[in-house]
């Protein structure tokens, strides 16, 4: 792959995007092996070290390209970031309700947080063993289950989205991504409790 022939900043408008950068189809489902090998190949082709003796503009271009490739890999290799990025591409400038949540979801999150408050008061020792640990494990299981069903729903939504999904699918995906943030927050808190 020749690093210099590619534009430095892919954007949805000119048909270039992170997926295309790695020669991958624009989809949520991703072949990790292909992503990894494309990343390796690309980052080698434009690693600034190989341009140390090159004229300044070429070195600068290699640096910029290298940064772009790293950022693209960071986004595509994370399920959440890839989903967010792809949703942005699919929405193609249409505005999304970034606060969309299912009815009653926030209240449920608040109640789970309150339950954690009751089970594990701020001054209590870490729940590493005994019944406390069991409670923490139970809560973690609950949150993990919710996250898994969210991911399952996300896969289905993306699979049925096509290239230009309707508002309802976009909204469903945005809602799905929003929910994940709140559940991840609960998970982070549980991790601290269990430490």
């Amino acid at each position: 792959m020749d690093c210099m022939n590619k534009p430095l900043r892919p954007s949805a408008s000119d048909g270039e995007d992170y997926f295309r950068l790695f020669g991958l189809p624009r989809s949520y489902a991703i072949d990790r092996a292909s992503l990894d090998s494309a990343y390796e190949e690309l980052s080698l082709s434009c690693h600034p070290d190989f341009f140390a003796a090159a004229p300044a503009p070429e070195l600068a271009a290699a640096r910029a390209k290298s940064t772009l490739v790293n950022e693209a890999y960071r986004v595509l290799s994370s399920d959440s970031l890839r989903a967010e990025y792809l949703l942005g591409l699919l929405a193609a400038g249409r505005s999304l309700d970034t606060r969309a949540l299912p009815e009653g979801f926030l209240m449920e999150m608040l109640e789970l947080q309150e339950e954690l408050d009751e089970l594990f008061p701020p001054e209590s020792p870490p729940a590493t063993d005994g019944p406390q640990a069991g409670q923490a494990q139970r809560m973690r299981g609950l949150v993990k289950e919710r996250l898994e069903s969210l991911l399952e729903e996300r896969r289905k939504l993306f699979a049925g989205a096509g290239e230009s999904p309707d508002e309802q699918i976009l909204r469903g995906l945005q809602t799905n991504l929003n929910c994940e943030k709140y559940l991840n927050r609960l998970l982070e808190r549980l991790e601290i409790i269990e430490q």
Binding site: L106, M109, L110, L177, K181
Partner: peptide
Amino acid sequence: GVVGAPECGDVMK
């Protein structure tokens, strides 16, 4: 009033 910030998952009542 229960509100949330999707940016970070904060919940406020």
